[in-house]
Amino acid sequence: MRRSNLGFVVAELVLKDFRVRYRNMSLGVFWSLLNPLTMMAILTFVFTKVLDNRIPYYPLYVLCGLIPYNFFTLSWVTGTVSISENSALVKRIPIQTALLPLVSVLSNTLHLAIQLLLVFALVLWYGLPVTWHYLWLPVIWILELLFIYGLALASSSLHVVIRDVRYVVESANLVLFWLVPIFYSFAMVPQQYKSLYEFNPLAALVLATQSVILGHRPPPPTLMWKMALVSAIFLLIGTFIFFRLRRRFYRYL
């Protein structure tokens, strides 16, 4: 396939995902807002009425963690099964297989963009200032995209060969919910664990988003380099595993 057409294939596949997801729902895009809204309401109720906490703008705080977390878990799971579920393409058409996990991640990014509108709606509702530091948000998100793509490239390749990978990914996502500052704050994490905690790119993403939106300041530099480092490492690992396993796809699918 010629290089110049790669963008076209990716765009068409992402559009397909988007259309298929929303076409048959009478409420359409509203559904993708309902899930974070419900979770936000429940967490806010539990952690402000049942348990006590002093985090300001708690509903917005929860969304700043929940939306990146949802994006991450959905991208990772759909990315993991992207090659095995498209076996009809992989076995019959000379298409760049590495594009399939990328398409999954990008489809979820569209989804994410819609949900981020919810965050901005809340920012305006609370009358919080919108600062120049918002320009950091695209940078943070691009780093996160690279990280997830690397992760999905590795897990989707492994999933073709060993079909247990999907369940490992789903379990890891459950555990991860507690390792990201969604309903508690980073300040509560004991000092000796903080440095290590920041190496989790998902936690870093949430911390950076909170810092920009709620703290009105740029994300801390140490956080940024840790995120960049981990993203680069995972992209390399993903690429390596993909190229090692690619030759086996046809036989295993």
């Binding site: 396939m1 010629r2 110049s4 057409n5 076209f8 294939v9 765009a11 068409e12 596949l13 559009l15 397909k16 259309r19 393409l89 058409i93 000379p94 298409i95």
Partner: peptide
């Protein structure tokens, strides 16, 4: 939509 999608998959620009 299927025409465009399939064309893209088959390598057309």
């Amino acid at each position: 939509e299927n025409l465009r999608l399939y064309g893209a998959i088959l390598g057309m620009s």
